[in-house]
Every structure is written in C-alpha cells, then in structure tokens.
C-alpha cells in the first residue's frame, strides 16, 4: 500500500539509508545549496520595509516584533522549501519513473527523504544568515523559550509536510500534461502574497484575514512563524486546518496517482 511501510523496523531501516544517502548527495553540492539559501531573501527585504514602517506609522505590531516575525518567516520558509514537482515532472516526461516503479517502495519516499536530508545540509547556512541579522538588529534578539521552539519546530515540520503533499499532488498532473510545474508556479504566486511572507496576517484587512484563514496558505508560513516568536496563535485551529488540508490533498493525491499510473506510458518504454 502506497504511503505505508509493510512493517515498522524495515521502514526505519529504509528511512535511515535514504536519509544518509541523500544527505551525502546534498553535501556534495554545498555551493549550489548556499546559492539556493541566498535566493530566499524575499522575507528579509520585507523585514527592512516593515521595521522602518512600524517606526513611523500605526500598525498592529511594533518594529522589533516585525523583525522577529520576518526572521521566523525566513527560517520557516527555508525549512519548507519543496521542489518535488520539477523532479517528478522530469521523471515522467523522460520516462525515468519506470525503473523506480519496479522497486518495492513507493517513489514518493525518495523525494520525501531527499527533501528532508537537504534540510540538514541547509541548516548551517540558515543559521549564519539568521545570526547576521540578529547582530544587525540586536533589539530583536531573544531566543524563543524551549517550549515555543519545540512547538514551532513541530509546526514547521507539519507545514513542510503539507506543502510537500500539495506540491506532490500538483506533480501528479505530469501524467496528463508536460508542464505540471506551471500549476505550481501559479500556486506559488498566491502563496507569496497570502501565506504571510510579505506581511503578517495581523496587518491584513479584517475581511481578507477571515477569508485567508480558510485557505491552506497561512498555515504554510504565518502560523508556524507566529508560534516560533510566541505571538498568540490559535494552535488547535491551526493544527486542525493543517491536518484537514493535508488529508484532503493526500486523498486527492492517491487517487490521481492511481489514475495517472494507468495513463503513464513511459517515454521510450
């Protein structure tokens, strides 16, 4: 069965092997990785804007909170980067999916663990950048309490899973179209503006806030970031929304996967 391992111990063994293999692979391309980290400076740009704006205008948060919020956004964003749709699209278009289908493990796990292990390879670069900004803005320094930090990490992990499932669902469209990544690109556009990357939801107009909270977007960035910096957050609602959206996309994903495999002809096979 698809997303489940036959038995737990074998599952752990497979996970450990995949993790270490992909970690070694990712560390090999350190320079490339560093550039990917640096290309995610978007929240840091908005941090400057909001920090300055909060000094002059009337906003829901003060300057230091804005800085802490955007540093948390940067952190969450880096740890939830997903690119599975591009890889999957290439595998389908070039027929490289075929050999993976023969293996006694669902191909999704390769993608999943390559993403997870990349997080560990990425960590040092993120830490350096966050450190640099804490040094530039000492008033924002102040590490989250251990409880907050653990809750924040759990929320980040959940956000990563949700984002992965959603993107992997888009990737399924590769069975029918050659450019499944176009869907992701369009989704990403909305994600940029509604996930809290350009501003915390607290400064959105009330009506927009209410609507956005029904979509999956704020749970991908805003909610985990808020938990990390210890802003009051409705955790139960956040958790329910993440799990709900996750299950919805998971069901859709498995259905598309089964339909898609029938459709799949395997280029060159």
């Amino acid at each position: 069965m698809a997303f489940r391992f036959p038995n737990l111990r074998r599952g752990f063994a497979i996970a450990r092997v995949l993790l270490s293999v992909y970690y070694a692979y990712m560390v090999e391309y350190r320079a490339e990785l560093m550039f990917w980290v640096l290309s995610g400076t978007f929240p840091l740009i908005f941090m400057g804007l909001w920090a300055k704006a909060a000094e002059g205008g009337q906003f829901a948060l003060d300057s230091a909170t804005f800085i802490r919020y955007f540093l948390a956004v940067f952190w969450v964003r880096q740890l939830t980067v997903v690119w599975v749709v591009w890889e999957f699209e290439r595998e389908v278009n070039e027929g490289k999916l075929s050999p993976f289908l023969l293996q006694p493990i669902d191909p999704v796990w390769r993608h999943f663990f390559s993403h997870v292990s990349e997080r560990f390879a990425r960590l040092p670069f993120i830490a350096v950048l966050v450190g640099l900004f804490l040094w530039l803005y000492p008033q924002a320094a102040g590490l989250p309490s251990p409880g907050q930090f653990i809750l924040g990490l759990i929320a980040t992990a959940l956000a990563f899973c949700l984002r992965f499932i959603i993107q992997y669902t888009f990737a399924m469209m590769a069975f029918w179209t050659e450019r499944a990544s176009a869907i992701e690109q369009f989704w990403y556009l909305i994600y940029t503006f509604l996930s809290g990357m350009i501003a915390p939801l607290a400064v959105f107009p009330e009506a927009v806030q209410k609507v956005v909270l029904w979509t999956p977007f704020p749970y991908l960035i805003y909610v985990p970031a808020n938990i990390l910096i210890g802003q009051p957050t409705d955790m139960l609602q956040g958790l329910l929304a993440m799990v709900g959206w996750g299950l919805l996309f998971l069901a859709l994903n498995r259905w598309l996967w089964r339909q898609g495999l029938r459709q799949y002809s395997g280029m060159g096979a």
Binding site: A31, E32, F35, W36, L38, S39, T41, F42, I45
Partner: peptide
Amino acid sequence: IYNVTEVLRGLLE
C-alpha cells in the same frame, strides 16, 4: 550554477 542568477533575482525584488 543554475541558481546564481536566482540570488540576483531575489534581491531585485
């Protein structure tokens, strides 16, 4: 280095 230009693009924002 496919992604070095992505850094520039990110900063251009």
